[in-house]
């Protein structure tokens, strides 16, 4: 396939958020700026599952997840006064997540001895056991393949492929340009495909 003759494919933008949810989050942010602890509690309840899932995919580790969630919300609380509504709040939140995850990933990769840590446990509410087992297996494979990516590629890949964010929002969330994000994403896709293929072959082999 003569690659040079075909332009790079367009990436799918982020789906529009539910207006009510976004408006509610923005109202909560206004209240938090006035030191309203109850507003932060509500925001925490609304977003904590999403934050935990995102951090889980970004880092692939369960053991430290509670600490990461905690760190994320502490940083979020500090960062909220600087939020001026120039992006969606979810993008802003993911920016905090990515900073926390990046810090953790780089720290953790210096501690390779932790590789023996057990893989995460997941909750599969409302699905039958067979499907839950498949999901657990898929998650395990995905995280092992993600471990082969660099930290920055991993963040971009997870945000696009697992969190459904478009490149513009990812660029805001990670503080890079659109082209950088697109380049990292394509590179990450290549690496991920290779890694996944190798992992599946390993799984098939006795």
């Amino acid at each position: 396939m003569p690659a040079e003759t075909v332009p790079l494919p367009r990436l799918v933008p982020t789906p529009l958020p539910g207006g009510q949810v976004e408006a509610r989050l923005l109202r909560l942010v206004d209240r938090i700026k006035n030191d309203d602890a109850l507003a932060f509690e509500e925001l925490y309840r609304l977003t904590r599952d999403d934050v935990a899932r995102t951090l889980f995919h970004l880092t692939g580790r369960r053991n430290d997840l509670d600490d990461l969630v905690q760190e994320t919300y502490v940083r979020l609380l500090r960062a909220i006064p600087a939020f001026r509504g120039e992006s969606q709040f979810r993008t802003f939140l993911y920016r905090v997540c990515s900073n926390v995850a990046l810090m953790h990933l780089r720290w953790w990769r210096r501690r390779r001895e932790d590789l023996s840590d057990e893989l995460p446990e997941q909750v599969f509410g409302g699905v039958d056991p067979e499907r839950a087992a498949q999901q657990a297996q898929a998650t395990r494979l995905v995280h092992r393949a993600l471990d082969t990516l660099s930290a920055k590629k991993r963040v971009v890949f997870v945000y696009h492929e697992l969190c459904g964010m478009g490149p513009e929002d990812i660029a805001q969330a990670v503080g890079s340009s659109y082209n950088t994000v697109r380049s990292r994403l394509h590179s990450a896709r290549l690496d991920f495909t290779k890694a996944m293929k190798a992992l599946v072959q390993l799984e098939v082999q006795p």
């Binding site: 899932r53 509670d66 997941q122 599969f124 657990a136 998650t139």
Partner: peptide, 9 residues
């Protein structure tokens, strides 16, 4: 398949 998995926190 992995997208919907939620960590047990």
């Amino acid at each position: 398949a992995a997208r919907g998995s939620t960590p047990a926190v």
